[in-house]
Amino acid sequence: MMSYLEEHYELIHKTPRLFALHVTREQLLDTLHQITTHTSFDTLSQLTCTDWIEEERFELGYMLTNALRSHNLMLKCSIARDKVTMPSLALLFAQAEVMERELHEMFGIGFEGNETLYDFALEGWCDIPPMRREFDTLAYVNAHYDFREGREDNLDVKEEIKKRKAAAKSAKETPSGA
């Protein structure tokens, strides 16, 4: 199982049971096809996406598992943040459909060939897709929801310490001056 991968790809050993492999967007379908036919990694168990905003890319991770569930292989594929479409794996793996649907909603990634890219968890969402790094959840909360009042007497402790020190200092100086 490993020998085929070692021969054909640059395999990264993360742990004894977890491997990673970098592919480009164009190679993805072909590589997946090769791996599922020639090795026992034939199940998609997770589809992840990481937003590397400072490098202007999304990193998608296709987590493959073998039939024995003993080893994991992650296919990593970087795509530009502005040109965000990927080929869909829905025909290869039935479970990919819902995972892609989720990523579509959370990151705004399009999956060509997936017919089910409608609302997943959010209803009537019209802001930036929420899992993108530029989406500021606290700013959104402040704009859309209110917090309960009554906590305005919160003090900044550093300021208070400074004030106290200054007060103590002036208290010391005053008697000496007088």
């Binding site: 802001d127 959840t137 909360v141 859309h144 929801y145 209110d146 917090f147 309960r148």
Partner: peptide, 19 residues
């Protein structure tokens, strides 16, 4: 339900139910 709880900064939960 009172003031957002753990999810006070979550974009998808309401903070004050009595609103």
């Amino acid at each position: 339900t009172i003031n957002g709880g753990m999810y006070w900064d979550s974009y998808n939960t309401i903070k004050k139910l009595d609103d």
